[in-house]
Design a protein around this nucleic acid. Structure first.
Lengths: 176, 176
DNA sequence: CCGATACTAGACAGACCTGTCTGGTATCGT
DNA sequence: ACGATACCAGACAGGTCTGTCTAGTATCGG
């Protein structure tokens, strides 16, 4: 139910990711979602509220996707990294939604930035757990490295630099 | 001469880097630079012109800085990477100006994005040359990797994640 | 059936945006 | 001395932004 809300959130997700948050206005979102302005402000108390919903939804979605990746330990880790690399080859790929959002919200105290930190901490935790499960040495440092490589893949992929993406994935898997 | 232009460019550099490009308006720049609006539009034909000047200046500045880093081959490469890591520890560090700009300009055909590509190509070339100078094997792939690690360091540093930065630098130097 | 909830269309306020224009002053090189 | 250039202050136009408000329709649980 409340399909108007879903339509708004879906449209916002598409537009914010493809064109950036600051450049897409509320008017644009509600026009594309075919929703009245009052309805929008009925469901979201402000644009920032919508932005947070967009990121929170994406966070939940990624959690679902990555938790469904089969395998254990290093196999699963490799699957996750190569899947990210494959994704970055797609035509609609525009980098990591969280890193893009962070670039548009310079103030680290912002709720948006806190959500980005939370996302990255979760991702690092996932890497850490998989490293421990695989019985690898120095999982803390390796988890940090994998997070950084993930960031790099997202950035390079978003800029269309497939060579760097490939180098990143291969080296990460070798090191780890 | 033309100190007004310098003041505008300096102020724009500071504000664009610290607060983002889209969120800082021309009015804000000219007020902070204590310059009349007509003077601004005398020196820059549009805001985008100012943005390009900001990035071009930063590009030239970095070229100067990195070309002045002493040493040869791997030593010089290590110096460059650790200097970047040190820089990312500083309080004013907000990531790479070019990556931040790219995040605000989703369209890859934009002049801004072309300048970002040019910057990254230059950086990769620098890495490649140093690897060849050091006689390392597989310099192409390693240059790609170093570029990706650089991207990761800039992102992680900008988000205040020093652990990831350290892991990135150390691993990059080991691998290379 | 009735009250709450979800929705529609669109006007409106007030702020901010880029860019132009007027009109005037000061400082140059020649 | 004079013309070009650099600079100042600030009004203005035309657009976009977020968010509120009016006014009315439709749907649904109890």
């Amino acid at each position: 139910m409340s399909s108007a809300r879903d339509r708004v959130l879906g449209t916002a997700t598409r537009l914010f990711y493809a064109e950036g948050i600051h450049t897409v206005g509320v008017d644009r979102v509600i026009a594309d979602a075919s929703v009245a302005k009052a309805t929008f402000y009925h469901h979201f108390k402000s644009k920032e509220d919508l932005v947070l919903a967009y990121l929170a939804t994406e966070y939940a979605r990624q959690r679902g996707v990555l938790e469904a990746v089969p395998g254990t330990g290093l196999d699963r880790l490799a699957s996750i990294l190569t899947e990210l690399a494959d994704l970055s080859r797609g035509p609609g790929f525009r980098g990591c939604p969280f890193l893009n959002a962070a670039a548009e919200y310079p103030d680290a105290a912002t709720p948006v930035r806190r959500l980005v930190d939370e996302y990255r901490a979760w991702y690092r935790g996932l890497m850490y757990d998989l490293l421990v499960e695989a019985g690898r040495s120095d999982p803390d440092r390796k988890a940090d490295l994998l997070l950084l490589v993930r960031d790099g893949i997202a950035v390079a992929g978003g800029l269309g630099d497939q060579a760097a993406v490939q180098a990143g994935v291969r080296t990460a898997l070798e090191v780890v």
